[in-house]
């Protein structure tokens, strides 16, 4: 047997909990190995020395007021406790307090999911990317940002692609797009209808620089 393994079994050997074959092996090892034998003897002495600590006793009458003090402390503890703890204690719902953080987190999650659900369930407002087509089919409309008179301003113009919804009829259903035909169909003066969502990269324009 390995020395380390034997050293782990000192307590079981002393208390007689080891099965006989194992106990015999451990004793044999202790007889053969001087280091382990010395170690075993020292452990035994140390245990006897530690066991003497049981004779350390508090002075007589030390626990006489223990219960009174306990009640006073409990009373003070309850005074310090907030309203909710007192309420929970009175209603025997104390275990819930230990779950309060979990419950609060779960509540927040459910609330967030609820909000998300409500947000997704709303009908698309003007400005959203999709709108029901006249025939009940969805369509995707892209329109360039309106450009006005300030196109000629000196300041550089940073344009983000804007996606507009349309509430006008000229639409093209994705199901009715002819691949060989024109993909983009003009709707009105400045509106285009696309057959797919396409986000064009941002453009950085300097239309004119005047000094």
């Amino acid at each position: 047997m390995k020395c380390y393994r034997v050293q782990q079994l000192y307590d079981d050997l002393a208390s007689g909990r080891l099965p006989e074959p194992l106990s015999r092996d451990v004793r044999q090892h202790l007889a053969d190995c001087t280091d382990c034998r010395v170690q075993h003897q020292r452990t035994g002495r140390l245990q006897r020395l530690l066991a003497l600590k049981r004779h350390e006793q508090p002075p007589a009458g030390y626990f006489d007021n223990f219960l009174t003090e306990f009640n006073a402390r409990l009373d003070a503890d309850l005074r310090r406790a907030g309203f909710w703890r007192r309420l929970f204690a009175a209603a025997d719902l104390e275990p819930l307090l230990s779950w309060r953080y979990g419950l609060a987190t779960a509540g927040c999650l459910i609330g967030a999911l609820g909000l998300l659900w409500v947000g997704l369930g709303q009908s698309p407002a003007p400005g959203s990317a999709t709108a029901p087509a006249a025939g009940g089919e969805s369509m995707i409309v892209f329109a360039p940002a309106p450009r006005g008179a300030d196109d000629d301003l000196i300041a550089p113009r940073f344009e983000l692609p804007l996606i507009y919804a349309t509430d006008v009829e000229p639409t093209i259903s994705s199901a009715r797009v002819n691949p060989s035909g024109p993909v983009v169909q003009q709707v009105g003066a400045t509106r285009y209808v696309l057959d797919r969502i396409s986000v064009t990269p941002a453009r950085y324009d300097v239309s004119s620089v005047d000094f």
Binding site: R45, R48, L49, A51, L52, H55, E56, Q57, P58, P59
Partner: peptide, 18 residues
Amino acid sequence: SLDNVDDAIQTDPDFVEL
């Protein structure tokens, strides 16, 4: 702040042996 050791220790076999 240690407790007192009671008198019974004098007759404890472990103590006697030590």
